[in-house]
């Protein structure tokens, strides 16, 4: 069974933040592809925009990913990889509640993920298989 990370971050409503969210979503795969490929542990990663109840604009960013094994020891990898680092910093920069400590170093990054992860335990994840990414795609 893999581990889910469900990062839910309400974002600011100003035009620049809203545009940044659109941009992040449109470019998500290309920006993180190399880092996630090389990690060898990520099954899926997806960035969605949750609309405001009014129907106009974005309320929050939802980054949804499923990976093998523990998360905490590997956050440093995602922090040190340019593509994934920029993606996470981009989300933090438009967060409605600015992260404290700021996401400028590894501790700030770890704390940002910890504070915004909706499910830390995989009790609500269905998975049809127990294979790891390495077993599926070969190592």
């Amino acid at each position: 069974m893999a581990t889910p990370l469900t990062l839910y971050v309400p974002i600011k409503q100003d035009a620049i933040s809203q545009a940044a969210a659109q941009y992040a979503q449109q470019n998500f795969v290309s920006s993180v592809q190399a880092g996630l490929d090389a990690s060898g542990i990520v099954h899926y990663a997806r960035l969605s925009l949750i609309p405001n109840p009014s129907g106009s604009g974005t309320l929050a960013i939802l980054l949804d990913t499923v990976f093998d094994g523990a998360m905490n020891p590997y956050l440093d990898y995602f922090w040190q990889n340019d593509g994934t680092k920029k993606a996470f910093q981009g989300i933090a920069a438009i967060a409605l509640t600015p992260p404290e400590p700021p996401v400028t170093d590894q501790t700030g990054f770890e704390n940002f993920i910890d504070a915004n992860n909706l499910n830390k335990k995989a009790t609500d994840l269905y998975q049809a298989y127990t294979l790891t990414v390495k077993q599926i795609v070969g190592s």
Binding site: A70, N72, N111, D114, K120
Partner: peptide
């Protein structure tokens, strides 16, 4: 104190640490 790393704050019994 919230500037301390989450792993230290949450402690070894937390779900995040128990994953390891």
């Amino acid at each position: 104190l919230t500037a301390f790393p989450a792993t230290f704050q949450n402690g070894p019994a937390s779900d995040g640490s128990q994953a390891s």
